[in-house]
Write a protein that binds this DNA or RNA. Structure first.
Lengths: 223, 223
DNA sequence: AATCAAATTACAATCCCGAATAATTAGGTC
DNA sequence: GACCTAATTATTCGGGATTGTAATTTGATT
């Protein structure tokens, strides 16, 4: 069971080398939460995966919920930060930003994270899951991490498309988020809909397709 | 706690009147699963909500997972069926169907269900949640209920837009599903993005907006 | 060297959950 | 009216789940 544990089983006492177990725990927790969700994940299993004692998790992170929050914030803030940076860069150049550029800037950080390795992909799934949960706590967490970057993007889109009312853009931004989360999460649905022909398509091509779709939707004429 | 129970507490023995407890259980389970997810829901609580003994749930539905499946299939098949009907109707009239009509036919059943009452809304949320779960069982369930209607819609869209390759349409269909699930589920995100101005917008107008967005995306020129 | 604090484990406590069984009541049937 | 069967409850069972406490080992500090 716990054979998957981190390389060297340690003995009690302060170690002088080896990886930070706190990070190992976060990584394994990320995988577990992504796969089974918050309620479906057992702290025991995380401990076993990380090759540490269960109490150590409590020692570092407190309660299970605290652990989840830490996992989420760790990468969530990375993404949010990257979005800010990319938008800044876009707005800094003299000419006005195109819609497709804004969309691309918004999507890119997550896209890259997804393909950065198993943990990046896990986080993306975890986050997609969280966006489907109606519990107050989940909502607060998402808001805390993502809200202000989203608002800035809505603003930027608004300036790029002055003829479309602000609230319409807000709504369309929600559509956008839904589409890309679902797509990133990809839980087999994509393959279903294309009869398995999707495997052939390259990563960047897929991102381009997504951006094209979303940009067209965002720019659609209002009734 | 269990004060919310079904009107009349029964005694053992076969009753001659009163509502079908099996249906009551399904309804309450629907609410519970939508709110807490599969793993986060306690069978005990469902029993309490329905005002029945826990063993009765097992008597009718077997295991917790079986119960979930029943809940999901009950309305899922309704939706799937309605989609088939609407598409048939669309294809039956002589003229070729417009993209926006196809999209509308696809969305309408869920939209109506969402606004049919608390249980309809709960099912929609439940389903959005299920679409974010990577577990094999969840995937199989979704496939079983929704797959063939989706395939027919992809086909119809393909015929409406002969210049766009089939696999592109499949991909865009996935975008569409993501966007509308997220939107239907609406877990406060919409309000966040529009700074609360969304409450003012009427239901049908919102659906129109969604259709407009999606149709524009679907028809976007390919690179 | 002696002590202190950090990191880790082992183990217990408490609670709660899903499943299962056995008992009970009432309606239908012949 | 005797009997069978369907519907329902009360209660138990076995197993984990998270949380919490106490002990142990080791590096750092003075």
């Amino acid at each position: 069971m716990a054979s998957d544990a981190a390389a060297t089983a340690r003995k009690p006492g302060r170690p002088k080398d080896g990886p930070e177990l706190a990070d190992v725990i976060l990584d394994k927790a990320e995988l577990a939460f992504a796969e089974h969700g918050f309620a479906g994940t057992r702290v025991r299993d995380i401990a076993a995966m990380a090759g540490v004692n269960q109490a150590l998790i409590r020692y570092y992170f407190g309660t299970k919920e605290d652990l989840f929050d830490k996992v989420f914030r760790r990468r969530g803030s990375l993404i949010s930060g990257a979005r800010h940076v990319l938008l800044d860069r876009l707005l800094a150049q003299g000419k006005p930003a195109k819609v497709s550029e804004i969309v691309m800037a918004y999507l890119r950080p997550q896209w890259d994270m997804k393909h950065s390795g198993p943990n990046g992909a896990a986080f993306v799934r975890l986050q997609a899951r969280l966006h489907a949960e109606p519990e107050e706590h989940a909502i607060r967490l998402r808001r805390e991490v993502y809200d202000d970057s989203v608002k800035r993007y809505v603003q930027a889109l608004s300036e790029a498309m002055p003829r479309i009312p602000r609230e319409t853009i807000g709504m369309r931004m929600a559509f956008l988020v839904g589409a890309y989360l679902f797509m990133l999460n990809d839980v087999g649905r994509l393959n279903d809909m294309t009869d398995g022909q999707i495997g052939m398509i390259g990563r960047d091509e897929m991102l381009d397709q997504l951006v094209r779709f979303l940009a067209a939707g965002l720019c659609a004429p209002t009734g």
